[in-house]
Design a protein around this nucleic acid. Structure first.
Lengths: 210, 210
DNA sequence: AAAATTAATTTCCTATAGTGAACCGACATG
DNA sequence: CATGTCGGTTCACTATAGGAAATTAATTTT
């Protein structure tokens, strides 16, 4: 009866997947905030304009609130989203999260020029995004635009050799084992200079605020 | 026809409340992100598991996505909530940093059990610390204490096979190509289970305090 | 202890989010 | 120009979130 957790769990089991600490317990957190302020469901209902029953169901993970409902919550309770989402009790941690990804079991994201495989994708709230990329492109001309995203990126060549183009600099030839660290809001692009496709591992930082 | 603004406004007036929450146009922002990456609705559908039609309606503020839908969005697009909610960023820097490290040219830090090679060590002010480690240890007994440090760690096996011990969990056997992401304040330790030394690549987050 | 009070849950119904399929331009290609 | 096909919107339908009221659980009152 829990909102979407069952089917997801089923999926996870079906696909032989493991641990995963993921879905941030929004309901739990809401209840925590409510109790901390000694509010009753009725109080919160007054403040947010949501029905008591609805609030109860949200707290018990029986429904997944619509985004407008979430907005009413944060508006009515005078909190902000990160507060509502941040997992309860960040300080006194008595456990740790971990998420294993076996070779080839990442989340695949194919594009014409690259083939990305997102690693550790089952773990939410990460500060880094790791992924493997198969580099198909063979010439710079295949790109219409620079790749560009906030933050920093670390990259190491796992297979083959590549040429890394970056804005403001000369292209670099990277061989297997070579690595590079750069500001990823600087335009960049990769091509394989091997006869076969090259494989690189990247780790990006993720914009914070939480 | 707009997803929630009308009723919310009415409510606010009726209850004499002040508008805390900016009426953040989630749909608009989503479309922005989608176009910035040159994704079609179909692409996003693939990544998130949401229907094309649903995405279209979200973008046009015809529906208010359920929170599980929002989670699928941020999961599938590899972004986080603040990013999805905050309006576009001022951008365009006029330079960028980069630091190349050729194979074996990192800064060496030998210890009895591990041999660390710090990568991109010439670049200061990084948000991530990448390094290669040659794992010499062959049994858990060689450790007197858990390794433990603030933040998060991503690790992938480059050569050989290892066993990863972590607090709170069972040990894991990792083969070449397998990777794992974990909270590094949770105690952890590595041993090689190959006949030769194993090599792993790690990336740690850096505490913003230091 | 029964009755009254208060807070959370559950029920049952309605409103709406989510889906697949059909539908529309806008561009190709023959 | 017919004929694809590609990206997006709309439609008809199903699944589920949200609300009003009944139910349950726990306290307090008399």
């Amino acid at each position: 009866m829990s909102a979407n957790t069952d089917q997801e769990a089923a999926l996870r089991i079906a696909s032989g997947r493991k641990p995963f600490v993921e879905p941030l317990r929004l309901g739990e957190r809401l209840k925590e905030i409510r109790l901390a302020n000694q509010w009753t469901l009725e109080d919160v209902s007054q403040r947010t304009g949501l029905a008591r029953s609805t609030l109860s169901k949200i707290e018990n993970d029986q429904i997944s609130p619509t985004f407008t409902a979430v907005q009413k919550l944060i508006g009515g309770l005078g909190i902000d989203l990160p507060q509502l989402l941040s997992p309860p009790k960040p300080q006194s941690r008595t456990f740790g999260r971990r998420d294993l990804t076996r070779t080839g079991e990442g989340q695949q994201h194919p594009t014409p020029t690259y083939e990305h495989e997102l690693l550790s994708w089952q773990l939410a709230q990460k500060r880094m995004i790791p992924f493997k990329t198969i580099v198909r492109a063979r010439s710079f001309e295949e790109f219409s635009e620079w790749v560009r995203h906030d933050g920093e990126e670390f990259l190491i060549v796992l297979e083959g050799t590549i040429r890394l183009y970056t804005e403001f600099y000369e292209p670099l030839e990277l061989e297997r084992g070579d690595s590079i660290y750069f500001d990823s809001d600087m335009g960049h692009a990769l091509v394989s200079t091997s006869d076969h496709d090259a494989v690189v591992l990247s780790v990006c930082t993720r914009g914070d605020a939480s």
